[in-house]
Design a protein around this nucleic acid. Sequence first.
DNA 1: CGCGCCCTGCAACAGCGCGTTACAAACCCC
DNA 2: GGGGTTTGTAACGCGCTGTTGCAGGGCGCG
Lengths: 239, 239
Amino acid sequence: MERSPHILIVDDDREIRALLSQFLGRHGCRVSVAKDGPEMFRTLEAARIDLIVLDLMLPGEDGLSLCRKIRADQRLPIIMLTAMGEETDRIIGLEMGADDYLAKPFNPRELLARIKAVLRRGHQPAEAERPEGARVLEFDGWRLDLARRSLHSPDGVQVQLSAGEYDLLLAFAERPQRVLTRDQLLDLARGRAATPFDRSIDVQVSRLRRKIEPDPKEPTVIKTVRSGGYIFTPDVARL
Amino acid sequence: MERSPHILIVDDDREIRALLSQFLGRHGCRVSVAKDGPEMFRTLEAARIDLIVLDLMLPGEDGLSLCRKIRADQRLPIIMLTAMGEETDRIIGLEMGADDYLAKPFNPRELLARIKAVLRRGHQPAEAERPEGARVLEFDGWRLDLARRSLHSPDGVQVQLSAGEYDLLLAFAERPQRVLTRDQLLDLARGRAATPFDRSIDVQVSRLRRKIEPDPKEPTVIKTVRSGGYIFTPDVARL
DNA sequence: CGCGCCCTGCAACAGCGCGTTACAAACCCC
DNA sequence: GGGGTTTGTAACGCGCTGTTGCAGGGCGCG
């Protein structure tokens, strides 16, 4: 890690802010602090933050809500601070999209360790930031143009895809040869969780097959894995 | 059918093994235990483990070393248990490639929470993982294509396998010339434990034989081992 | 060698996961 | 706000899969 990481501490307790700021500063981090959501967003605007340490309990909007808001428009590592208690695991198990969490009271050294671990784990290039990743994905002669969100068949004609079909196909093509559950697909392509008897992915897969399978009755590109999900079988070249 | 995660606990303290095994079992996990490295590797061979909880301090080879060995040939989520101490962060900061760690003593609920979090995070194919690993298994002229989940007979025609038949055949082909119990097969192919009078493997073997045995009346590929299980006899080449 | 127990193979059946279609709700672009 | 398009939901039918029961056969034991 050459450039020293810039950490943003979000906590309403002035003492904690001071303590962590000092401790992390002494260990090679640049540190900013914020006492609530608005202040946090102002800092995010102004600085290039590498990681946020976010308290769960905050005046006004709570940490969980802020966490989702941040994630909505950028992929930024977040470590949550939670009050120790019975609900800890429930919170985690639920949905907080944080990269890690830590129960108070904690040892600052442990926080530092987790910060390093999360940073080392590294930004999985999350969609938006991929200035020169693949612009086109090719499979079985098909070409999926990420810039234009368009699809061309092996013989060169453009196939019209709806927004949802494109998103779903992209989710598949970026993860070829892996079984993807309906939950994962729903998350990847729609950004939402499943409702109790959610069949929307099934239907959307069916519609997509109609457009890209040689024989939709006998799918070879997107195969069904019973009680598992679906798998995108072709090799994908990133151009 | 929701596939329940299979957790392997590696710790030399019998009491911890018992405690965790019981606790995780009560919370919807299937659990295996091992007291040291050799035992761990034996279990990894025999079962389809989803996540390892690995103690740092072990007799013989220590956890860190084991962790690296595991990572050398497969991507498998690992949570390390460390003795609380000043070195915690140093260890983390250093190189242990674990997905998470937990300092002893800890609350089992927290371990469960972290297990769920790591599993949910899902094997994000950690960069280096993809290229390796066999793409095709060949035996007796048959070809099992792992990417496409398809099977081709010696004369080249594709044989339709149901999802369950494929999973079962894969479990066999990855462990040729070893007697596999019904319990093991159920774990490997279905990710579940046996019910009291479970005969589903027998039936599925029968269905599979119908498709791949030259003479299903006289099986040569998948042989029955009376009161033992089944054994997959051909040599398997990994291409 | 014959009897009986237990293990296994397999047909028949039932439950349910999934593909598909039809339709309604939501969205979108003037 | 209205037409067309897209997306989610409900419903139906098919085929996969676990269960059950029975028949056949191995193996121990007398």
